[in-house]
C-alpha cells in the first residue's frame, strides 16, 4: 500500500482524498488525523469536511478558493498530520451502548452464529467484549460505523438489503459493526437493538459520538431495555 494520499477535485466544489485502499484500523486512524487536522487548520477556508471509511471530502465555495490552491493546502496539512498522535487533535470519549441481543430485535443473530460456527451466546459475548472505534457517521443521520469486529464473527452483509430497519438496530457487516440512528433501509446483519435514542434532530449536537471516539456494547435484559427506552445516548451512563 502506498503511504501517499490521492487528492482530486470533483464537480467544482469538492476535493476528495483517498487515504488508503483497504479498510484497516491503521488506515482509519490516518483518516481521522487528517480529518481533525483539516478541521483545525482549514475550517476558515472550507465549508464542510466529511469522512468516509478510508477517505474524506472537503466541500468548498469556488468563489473563495479553487481546487488548485486547496489541494496543496490539504497536502501541507497531511505532511505534519501523518506524524502526530490523534490525541493531539481530538480527545476521544467513550460511550456505552446497552443492547438487547437476538430475538425480534436481532433477527440475524442466528445466521451470524451459523456463519461463525458458534453459539448465539458466544457471538454476543465476542461482540460485546471489544472496545470499538467510531470510524465515521453516515449514510443516514446518526448511523455510526464502528470497527474492528472480531474476525470470528465478521459475517458479510446480507445479499438483499431490508427495506425497513428500526432505529437503534445493531448490525454487523464484515469488519464493521454499526448502529442505525434512524429507521432506514440497510443490508447489515442485525444482531440486536439499543433502547437508547441515538440521534435527536432537536438536540445540539443531535448525536455526541464523533469519529475516533470509543464505543462499547453492554448486553441488557428485556426489562432493562424497556426501562432505558428513549434515553439519549449522550445521557446514558452504565
Amino acid at each position: 500500500m502506498s503511504s501517499d494520499i490521492r487528492v482530486v477535485g470533483s464537480g467544482g466544489y469538492v476535493v476528495h482524498v483517498d487515504i488508503c485502499e483497504d479498510l484497516t484500523m491503521e488506515c482509519v486512524g490516518r483518516a481521522h488525523r487528517l480529518y481533525y487536522a483539516i478541521l483545525r487548520e482549514l475550517s476558515g477556508i472550507v465549508d464542510e469536511v466529511v469522512l468516509g471509511t478510508t477517505s474524506l471530502a472537503v466541500y468548498y465555495d469556488p468563489r473563495r478558493i479553487r481546487a488548485s490552491d486547496l489541494i496543496p493546502s490539504i497536502r501541507r496539512v497531511w505532511s505534519w498530520a501523518r506524524e502526530v498522535e490523534l490525541g493531539e487533535l481530538h480527545r476521544p470519549r467513550r460511550f456505552t451502548i446497552p443492547v438487547l441481543y437476538g430475538g425480534e430485535h436481532g433477527p440475524d443473530l442466528g445466521s451470524v452464529a451459523r456463519w461463525a460456527g458458534l453459539s448465539e451466546e458466544e457471538v454476543v459475548r465476542i461482540h460485546s467484549s471489544r472496545v470499538y472505534t467510531c470510524i465515521t457517521l453516515g449514510f443516514t443521520p446518526g448511523f455510526i460505523y464502528l470497527g474492528e469486529v472480531d474476525p470470528r464473527i465478521a459475517a458479510p452483509r446480507l445479499e438483499t438489503p431490508r427495506v425497513r430497519i428500526p432505529r437503534g438496530s445493531v448490525g454487523i457487516a464484515g469488519k464493521m459493526t454499526g448502529v442505525y440512528g434512524l429507521e432506514s433501509p440497510g443490508g447489515w446483519r442485525l444482531i440486536g437493538r439499543t433502547p437508547l435514542t441515538m440521534f435527536d434532530p432537536r438536540r445540539s449536537p443531535p448525536i455526541p459520538i464523533a469519529p475516533g471516539d470509543e464505543v462499547v456494547f453492554k448486553p441488557v435484559s428485556p426489562e432493562e431495555f424497556s426501562r432505558l427506552s428513549g434515553v439519549f445516548v449522550g445521557e446514558y451512563s452504565s
Binding site: E48, V50, L51, L137, F139, P141, G181, F199, P205, P206
Partner: peptide, 10 residues
C-alpha cells in the same frame, strides 16, 4: 441544511 453532513444528515 448545511454543516451536518459529518453526522450523516443529508
Amino acid at each position: 441544511r448545511r454543516g451536518y453532513r459529518a453526522l450523516g444528515v443529508p
